[in-house]
Design a protein around this nucleic acid. Structure first.
Lengths: 146, 146
DNA sequence: ATCCGAAATTATAATATTTGTCAATAAACA
DNA sequence: TGTTTATTGACAAATATTATAATTTCGGAT
């Protein structure tokens, strides 16, 4: 799912119409690296597209999630945040500065296998890490030393 | 952290007062197996304690989270849900019926290790599984066969 | 055991977040 | 191009969460 044409086709396959707004939100999320929340998406896009409605952002996100073009990363204790990069990856949440970094963890097969018992089927797993990012880690050390 | 006395001590250690309401919410969450949301906690407890306020539930949950007596499991696309069982475990979300099951996955060390590079420190990981639970799995099969 | 100050609870108001309504508009397709 | 139908945008409504102020309770010191 790399090319615009494919993404347009996906929307059509699901029976959704391909609108300017939908492409704008999708493009925004695919370019962004900060896993923005609804409000951020809205505010950023409103500068360029002043008539854009907040409800449209919500509707569009719901539609993009259904088609698998975008996902809600389920950040804890915060507002919903979205990711337009659909290649398999995990997230690292810095508990100090709030930054969210992408992380590729291979070899998840045995985890899936471990969960797949007692009659369950497992489609997908979410693996999130929490701790201090590089910058905050450095700060902590500096504080301790001083 | 098994005994009431320990939990009371934990609250005191953090400088929080030990109130009836806090113990009631904590006890409720430790007994519950359904990872209830704020509203469910409030409604269930209000039967027994009619003067209990919704704001108290929010405040208490925030306080219990800070002391590590309870955690927000970060269920996706839903309201916040809480868990009073603090032994290390993962969650399985049935994508059909919405049930949340507990799951113990051992051997997470190498995952932590994999994330711990580029200057990061990792305190904790969240590992959630998504799929169909035993009951929904059976239903799917039945539908397909018929 | 009783009193005092700080903190927590309650009830309510305010805010924030998300969803619904519906006329106007734009996309798909003949 | 015209017709059909889904989507948009503005606003209203519903939910969820947080803030405020008066009262009550906790916990330490009498």
């Amino acid at each position: 799912m790399r090319h615009l044409a494919d993404q347009i086709q996906t929307m059509k396959d699901f029976g959704f119409k391909v609108t300017h707004q939908r492409l704008v939100v999708l493009d925004y999320l695919q370019r962004s690296k900060e896993h923005p929340c609804v409000e951020k998406i809205y505010n950023d896009l409103k500068e360029r597209y002043p008539t854009l409605s907040l409800a449209t952002i919500y509707n569009t996100l719901e539609m993009l999630e259904k088609t698998g073009l975008v996902k809600d990363i389920g950040a804890p204790e915060e507002r919903r945040r979205f990711d337009g990069i659909m290649t398999e990856h995990s997230h690292f949440f810095c508990t100090k500065c709030g930054k969210i970094e992408d992380l590729v963890i291979s070899d998840k097969g045995h985890l899936m296998e471990a969960a797949r018992n007692n009659g369950r089927s497992v489609d997908r797993l979410r693996l999130d890490f929490f701790g201090l990012c590089k910058d905050c880690q450095v700060e902590e050390k500096t504080v301790q030393e001083s």
